[in-house]
Amino acid sequence: MIGRLPLDEQLAVLTSVLSSNEVLLEVLNRAATLELPGWYVTGGCLFQTVWNVVTDRHPGSGIKDYDVFYFDDRDLSWEAEDAVIRAVGEAFAGLPAEVEVRNEARVHLWYEQKLGVACAPHASTEAAIDSFAATTCCLGVRLEWGGRWRVYAPHGLSDVFNLVVRPNPVLAPREVYEAKTARWRQRWPELTVLGWPSASTMLTPSST
């Protein structure tokens, strides 16, 4: 079972599995040429590729889009981000998928209006990934010099390989988690989706 392998072996399997998604691999290769500060490919395109391979589906099945995050806090205007989106969009022209590019330094400016809860400014792309609604989703990868894979997985990879979706109640509200998991379950019924923790559980300090 992949989720029970040592972490270094899980990482080797992860890069092999993600490479089997030709669109994802092309997004990674093209993004690596753009010199976006602190960039990662992240979101559903990663863990859903793993789910597809583990459940014997086509690697790209059901993947809505491919997210490229970067972090640039030098200019937080929409105009600056839009200029990057337009310029970078040309690099992904011709791919049979939608690629969404977003500056995570700006998330706090629109998050509350969109999702109903306030968001403190992120300090990095990694911090933005840390705030995803499920710990299983907290995954980012990029290609660095020499083709080296950089993998950011603050909660490890076992849940991803074991098809377990675990809530991450640090920012996104419960309804976001439940809406996402309901949608994922329709396409991947093999998932084990853990429930949102109760208020009492969240307030109880962990034992030492």
Rank of each mutant, 00 (worst) to 15 (best):
V88G: 03
W110V: 14
D56N: 14
V53L: 05
A83N: 13
L115T: 12
P189L: 09
T33Y: 04
V141R: 04
G195L: 12
W196G: 03
A87Q: 14
P96W: 11
P96M: 10
E112F: 04
T42D: 06
R150V: 13
L11F: 13
A118T: 14
D65H: 08
W51I: 07
L25F: 07
L95E: 00
P169L: 06
R148Y: 12
D130N: 12
Y66N: 02
A80P: 05
A123Y: 12
K64T: 15
L11W: 06
A120N: 13
G156A: 05
G44R: 01
A83F: 10
F71S: 02
V53A: 04
G94D: 00
E22Y: 08
S207Y: 14
V53T: 06
L115W: 15
K114N: 13
W110L: 10
T192N: 14
L76Y: 05
F161Y: 03
E144I: 14
G140Y: 01
N21G: 09
N103V: 01
R4L: 15
A87F: 11
V23Q: 00
L163S: 05
P189H: 12
T125K: 09
N29H: 15
G89W: 06
P37R: 13
V88N: 07
L36Q: 01
A31E: 00
R183T: 14
D67W: 04
K64Q: 15
R142C: 01
Y111I: 06
G94N: 04
V27W: 02
L46F: 06
L76R: 10
Y70P: 05
T49Y: 00
F71Q: 04
M202K: 13
S198H: 13
W184D: 06
F92S: 03
H108C: 10
G156H: 03
A97M: 06
Y111E: 10
P197V: 11
P205E: 10
A182H: 09
C137I: 11
A87D: 09
S207G: 13
G44V: 05
L46D: 00
N52S: 08
T125D: 02
I129H: 00
R150S: 11
A199W: 11
W184T: 03
C138L: 04
E112R: 12
V193D: 00
F92H: 01
C138V: 12
Y111M: 09
V41F: 02
E79T: 14
R166L: 04
G156M: 04
L24I: 02
A133S: 10
L171V: 03
E104P: 02
V141P: 01
R187I: 14
V23C: 01
F92M: 04
D73M: 09
G89E: 03
R142T: 02
V53R: 08
T49A: 00
V88Q: 07
L171Q: 02
S200M: 13
E112G: 05
V68A: 04
T136V: 09
R150Y: 09
K114R: 15
R174V: 12
E22L: 15
L171Y: 00
L18W: 06
H58W: 15
A182F: 09
V54A: 10
V54Y: 07
V170A: 10
T201M: 12
E90Q: 12
A133Q: 08
A127N: 10
F69V: 12
Q113E: 14
P37A: 08
T192R: 15
A133I: 12
T135S: 11
H108Q: 11
G44E: 00
Q186P: 05
E26D: 09
I85G: 09
T201S: 14
V99Q: 03
